[in-house]
C-alpha cells in the first residue's frame, strides 16, 4: 500500500503531474470524514450497545490510555507476540536451513511439516493447547508460535532458494570455512527475507494473539475482548479494535517499511 509514490506515478501517467496525487489525497481525507460522519449518523439511530458513536468511543480511548490496568493488557499482548515471533522465527529458520544444507530432509520439511502446519487452523491449535496446558500464557505463546512457524519456513526457504549460486561458488573459492561463508555471504543475502518474514509474522501474529488470548489467556487485549463481550461493552470492543488497527498499521509503516526499504527488496510487500 505505498501510496504517495504510486499515486504520483499514476498522476504522471495521466499526464497531470502531481495535481491528481493531491486530489487523490484530498479525496481520501474526505472519505475518512464521510466514514466518521456515517458512523456517527448511524449510531444516532441504533441503541448504544449495538453501535456507540465515534465520540463515546474516542472518550473511552482516552480513558484507556490513562488507566494502568489497561496498559497491562496491551503490554501482555506485546509480550506474547514478541515471544511467539522470536521462537517461530528461530524454529522456522532452523528447519529451512536444515532442509537447505541437508537436501535429504527437503521433502520432510517442505513436503510434510510445513504444509501440515500451514493448513492447521490457529483456533484449532488454541483449543488443543487449552486442553493440553490449560488457560495461561504458555497456551497463548504456543498457539502464536505454531501458527507463525510455517510462515517463517516458507519465507526463509524462498530466500535460500534464490541465493546466487555464482556468488556461493565465488565464496567457496575464497574460503573453505563454511561458517565464514555463511556469515559473510549467505546471511547478508538472506537479510531481506528475514525482514519480510518478520513483517508478515507481525501482521499475522496480532490476529492469532487476539484469538488465542480470547479463549486461552488471562491477560492481553484478547482477554479484554472476552470481558467486553461478556459485559456487552461494545465501546471497549471498538476501542481495542481501534488501538490494534493503529498499532499494526503504524508499526508496519513506521518500523517495517523503512527497515525493509533500507535492507530489503524494494518491491517486497507484506502478503499478510
Amino acid at each position: 500500500m505505498p501510496s504517495a509514490n504510486s499515486i504520483a506515478a499514476a498522476g504522471r501517467r495521466a499526464g497531470q503531474g502531481w495535481t491528481i496525487a493531491r486530489r487523490s489525497r484530498l479525496a481520501a481525507h474526505l472519505f475518512t470524514l464521510a466514514f466518521l460522519l456515517a458512523w456517527w449518523g448511524y449510531s444516532q439511530t441504533v441503541p448504544a450497545f449495538v453501535l456507540p458513536g465515534p465520540v463515546p468511543v474516542a472518550t473511552r480511548l482516552v480513558q484507556f490510555f490513562t488507566t494502568y490496568n489497561l496498559y497491562k493488557h496491551a503490554f501482555a499482548s506485546l509480550e506474547h507476540i514478541a515471544a511467539g515471533m522470536a521462537i517461530a522465527f528461530a524454529v522456522g529458520t532452523a528447519l529451512a536451513l536444515a532442509a537447505h544444507y541437508f537436501p535429504v530432509l527437503r521433502l520432510a520439511v517442505h513436503g510434510r511439516v510445513s504444509p501440515f502446519l500451514n493448513s492447521f487452523s490457529g483456533i484449532g491449535w488454541t483449543l488443543l493447547s487449552i486442553v493440553w496446558f490449560g488457560v495461561n500464557e504458555f497456551t497463548v505463546i504456543f498457539a502464536i508460535t505454531v501458527v507463525l512457524t510455517p510462515f517463517a519456513i516458507i519465507n526463509m526457504r524462498e530466500g535460500l532458494d534464490t541465493l546466487d549460486r555464482e556468488m556461493l561458488e565465488m565464496a567457496a573459492s575464497f574460503t573453505r570455512n563454511r561458517w565464514r561463508e555463511f556469515t559473510r555471504v549467505v546471511a547478508p543475502a538472506l537479510l531481506p527475507f528475514v525482514f519480510a518474514t518478520l513483517r508478515i509474522s507481525f501482521g499475522v501474529s496480532w490476529k492469532v494473539a487476539l484469538a488465542a488470548e480470547l479463549f486461552g489467556g488471562r491477560t492481553g487485549l484478547g482477554y479484554l475482548f472476552n470481558l467486553a463481550q461478556q459485559n456487552f461493552d461494545v465501546r471497549l470492543i471498538l476501542v481495542v479494535i481501534a488501538i490494534i488497527i493503529a498499532f499494526v498499521y503504524g508499526t508496519d509503516r513506521l518500523v517495517f517499511a523503512p527497515l525493509q526499504s533500507r535492507f530489503g527488496r524494494p518491491d517486497a510487500e507484506p502478503a499478510s
Binding site: 472519505f31 475518512t32 496480532w206 461494545v234 479494535i241
Partner: peptide, 27 residues
C-alpha cells in the same frame, strides 16, 4: 477513477487488512 486511488490504497485496504478477525466475529 484514479482520483479514488488513495481512498482504496490508503484507507480501505489498511483498515480492512489490520482489522482483527476476532473483532469482526464479536461485532
Amino acid at each position: 477513477w484514479p482520483v479514488t486511488e488513495a481512498i482504496v490504497r490508503d484507507r480501505i485496504t489498511p483498515f480492512l487488512n489490520s482489522f482483527p478477525s476476532v473483532g469482526w466475529a464479536i461485532l
